[in-house]
């Protein structure tokens, strides 16, 4: 049954954490506003491309348990990113390729089988009101649309004329990493750590902590010892910064990271390596290597 005519997605099952994400809002860090945006940016861009959207159109980003939505008009959708079972009204449909969802049908992206975060792109994109030029939810600052709740309605945009591009056969989606290898550029505060700590960082076996979130990838492993113990005055933080809090376990800053921070950053993981970090489930083996 279709409750009202219009162009909306109705949230049937929000999952553990599903947010609206686009390319984020870079360029406002000096106001205390972080970047936000899809953590697995290549997956979000690919999903958009497959439904004929611009690469920065707003999509849904799920966390581990997927989500289910019901459009109130027919829409072409793609579920990509983390691999999962996809159904339309209970009937299995393709993952990672465009599917037609009839008006009133339930599109269900199931729990992630591999990886952590699936992306649901819809022809026309999601169009909640932008904040500072972006529709992304920023879970640290609270900017942008709130995480999805059952019963929410999300406005859908008008698909580009011409519809999705003609299918060119299967496209390659990078899978979830069995082992996450993150390259490290040392600095800006590598000199706040002991020589032994820098060796440990680049040689020890870490694991992805279950306390990871959109703010940072937390790690479990040998703590890094500081050579300077005084307090670091707050300084600007970049995406991919490896901040070392007092417990000594490195945290890799992801898109919702704070714009300034007071713990030293031992090194920086380049942005292109962070998509894999976004798909690494808790417990995944993790190594840091010199960039």
């Amino acid at each position: 049954m279709i409750p009202v005519a219009g162009r909306h997605l109705h949230v049937v099952r929000p999952g553990a954490l599903t947010t609206v994400q686009d390319a984020g809002r870079p360029g406002h860090a000096h106001l205390g506003v972080g970047r936000a945006g899809a953590l697995d940016a290549p997956a979000a861009r690919l999903a958009n491309r497959l439904v004929g959207n611009p690469p920065d159109a707003a999509v849904l980003e799920t966390t581990l348990t997927g989500c289910a939505v019901r459009p109130d008009r027919p829409v072409v959708a793609v579920v990509g990113g983390a691999g999962c079972r996809v159904t339309v009204d209970g009937r299995p449909v393709a993952w990672g390729a465009p599917v037609r969802v009839p008006a009133g049908a339930v599109l269900d992206a199931g729990p992630a089988g591999t990886g952590l975060r699936s992306y649901l792109a819809f022809a026309g994109g999601l169009v909640p009101d932008p904040v500072l030029g972006s529709r992304s939810a920023d879970l640290l600052s609270g900017l942008g649309p709130a995480p999805l709740s059952a019963g929410d309605e999300l406005p859908l945009g008008e698909p580009a004329s011409g519809g999705p591009p003609p299918s060119a056969g299967p496209v390659p989606w990078p899978g979830a990493p069995a082992e996450l290898v993150l390259p490290v550029h040392p600095g800006p505060r590598d000199d706040w750590f002991t020589e032994a700590a820098l060796r440990t960082l680049l040689t020890a076996a870490y694991r992805v902590s279950p306390h990871s979130n959109r703010i940072g990838l937390r790690t479990e492993g040998p703590p890094l010892e500081r050579s300077r113990t005084e307090e670091l005055p707050s300084e600007g933080m970049v995406l991919g910064a490896i901040q070392v809090p007092p417990d000594g376990c490195p945290v890799v800053f992801l898109n919702d990271h704070p714009t300034t921070g007071g713990y030293p950053v031992v090194g920086v993981v380049p942005e292109r390596a962070l998509a894999a970090a976004a798909q690494a489930v808790p417990g995944t083996r993790l190594r840091f290597v010199g960039a």
Partner: peptide
């Protein structure tokens, strides 16, 4: 430069 972020005794030039 995309972001110029001043802080307590530093300025970050990012992007």
């Amino acid at each position: 430069v995309r972001d110029i972020v001043p802080a307590a005794r530093t300025v970050l030039l990012d992007g």
